[in-house]
Computed example of a mutant assay.
Amino acid sequence: MTLRNKNIVILTSDLFEESEVLYPQIRLKGEGADVKVLSPTGDSVKGKNGFAALPVDGAIKDVSIEDVDAVVVPGGFAPDKVRQDEAAIELVKAADAAGKPVAFICHGLWVGVTADILQGRTATAVGVIRPEVEGAGATWSDDHVVVDKNLVTAQIPRDLEEWMKKFIDVAKA
């Protein structure tokens, strides 16, 4: 089984962690998914490590939950901007409420905190946001990658391969 005919969106903004956007984008396309990178404004975004400008496929507000099969939120410092976008928060809430796969890595889980979808869940992220994750009602795990039903979380770039493997397994189910 592949991800053919699955529409997956990656939500990001300026100061994204390059590997956490590009790796999922390439990996998911390799599984046959239609992958769209979206930003709050629809404008290209700049990476935190010098990636000059990554073109995006549109604005988050222009996507409907009915058109999305899964959501990926990478890290870097972009999630702090993404979580200020009401359309992004509504999309993440709707995806989770519908049981659609939602993946966060590193600081990306800030978006899950703001979307208020972590109550009673087990999750992981970069350690520095552990207080926010626990404050949002999640049980913190020191595991590199955690799957809690439709929610797939990971700590940092070293976990990209395992994170995407587990996310793909959840998305195929």
Rank of each mutant, 00 (worst) to 15 (best):
F16L: 01
A136Q: 12
R83D: 05
D96G: 05
D69L: 00
E20V: 02
K165W: 08
A94C: 02
V35G: 13
D116C: 01
N150A: 08
V71T: 07
A53S: 15
G76V: 10
G32N: 11
C106G: 02
V92F: 06
V68R: 14
P79C: 00
A95V: 04
L118Y: 00
D159P: 03
G76P: 03
G108K: 05
L3T: 07
A87F: 09
M1L: 13
V71G: 03
K165P: 00
A88Y: 02
L22Y: 03
Q155N: 08
D43G: 00
A87C: 12
D43I: 00
V45R: 09
P40M: 05
F51E: 06
A103W: 10
A154L: 07
E134D: 01
A125Q: 07
L151C: 07
L22T: 12
L54C: 07
A123D: 06
D62P: 03
G42L: 00
L22M: 15
P157K: 13
L54T: 11
T2V: 00
K100Y: 02
A115S: 08
A94F: 03
W110A: 12
V35M: 09
V145I: 05
V126T: 10
V145L: 06
K36D: 14
D148Q: 09
R4T: 11
K166R: 14
R130K: 15
G76A: 11
D96W: 07
V21D: 03
D14R: 04
S141F: 04
G30N: 05
V68E: 14
A136I: 07
L22I: 15
F51G: 08
I89C: 12
S44L: 09
P24S: 08
K93A: 05
G30L: 06
V73E: 04
D69H: 06
Q155S: 13
G47K: 06
D159W: 01
Q119F: 02
S13G: 12
F167V: 00
S13V: 02
Y23H: 10
A171K: 10
E17K: 05
D96A: 14
S64P: 10
T139D: 06
I168L: 09
A70Y: 02
G32A: 13
